[in-house]
Simulated scan of single mutants.
Amino acid sequence: MTTTKQKTALITGASSGIGYELAKLFAQDGINLVLVARRKSLLEEIEKDFEQRYKIIVHCVELDLALLDSPAQLYQFCQKNNLQVDYLVNNAGYGDYGKLVTVDPALYQNMLTLNVLTITTLTSLFVRDMVQRRFGYILNIGSLAAFQPVPQMAVYGASKTYVMHFTEALHAELRGTGVKATVLNPGVTETGFVERANMGGAAYAQGTLLKASRVALAGYRGMMAGKLNVVPGFFNKLLSISTGLTPSRRVLLAISSFVMRGK
């Protein structure tokens, strides 16, 4: 891989969880950062810490990426400040646990804008410059939910299936350009995701969860190696493989319904 000196990584949803852990990995390798999130105070704390500890340059962007014009604003910010983005990490996203009939449609509109449209637009904007320079890495954060229909999280699961298929297709399109696209599909992880998704009552959310640092490291290494699809954790890998081996979609749906039931 080309030297990381003077390289810059842009990470969305960078104030906590997997996004924060990924930012730390880039910082440890001496890569400058553009960190994007809604919580400016947390970003500023990270900026001060990383600049002092790792001697890198950190730019903080307070932005709600669920707004349709936010990807263009973010791209323009980088252009205006002469920031060449060499690594793009689309981490921002969220889910919601509950039956479709019980949820306000506005929440799904917001979720799909962030989970699908924002990732697509940001990738489309930045990948053009990467291809022109013949260097770049893209890491899109999907989910283990991408591999099968997910009752109780129907919209979230479908959005992550989009992220996986989109990234894998992009990986093929970029062959020979010097740019790589990787999708990271973690299972439920120790972040704020479970709380925000109101998922505490789901059987799937019980028991031992992977730490965000472990998930981030798997994604970081996979991205740097140009891998197609990364699923951290042995049990999660088995689940992702088994969905393709299940002979019936009805059986797969029944298994998924059982896993996602209330505890």
Rank of each mutant, 00 (worst) to 15 (best):
1 M>A: 08
4 T>R: 11
5 K>H: 11
10 L>Y: 03
13 G>I: 06
14 A>I: 07
14 A>Y: 00
15 S>R: 09
16 S>T: 12
35 L>H: 07
36 V>A: 01
38 R>F: 02
42 L>Q: 15
43 L>E: 02
43 L>W: 00
47 E>K: 14
55 K>M: 11
55 K>Y: 11
57 I>Q: 15
58 V>M: 10
59 H>E: 15
63 L>I: 10
67 L>V: 10
67 L>R: 15
69 D>A: 12
72 A>C: 12
72 A>M: 14
75 Y>L: 09
77 F>Y: 15
78 C>D: 06
81 N>P: 09
85 V>M: 01
87 Y>R: 12
93 G>I: 06
96 D>R: 15
97 Y>N: 05
99 K>V: 00
104 D>V: 07
111 M>P: 05
113 T>W: 12
113 T>Y: 08
116 V>A: 05
125 L>Q: 07
125 L>N: 03
126 F>S: 04
133 R>A: 02
135 F>D: 08
140 N>Q: 06
141 I>G: 06
142 G>K: 11
144 L>W: 01
147 F>S: 00
147 F>R: 04
148 Q>Y: 00
150 V>G: 03
153 M>H: 01
161 T>V: 11
165 H>W: 07
168 E>P: 12
170 L>D: 03
172 A>C: 14
173 E>F: 09
175 R>E: 15
177 T>Y: 00
178 G>L: 07
193 F>A: 06
196 R>L: 15
197 A>P: 08
197 A>K: 05
203 A>G: 07
206 Q>S: 14
210 L>S: 14
216 A>F: 04
217 L>V: 11
223 M>R: 01
228 L>P: 05
228 L>E: 14
230 V>I: 15
233 G>E: 02
234 F>C: 13
239 L>A: 14
242 S>L: 13
245 L>F: 13
249 R>I: 01
258 F>I: 01
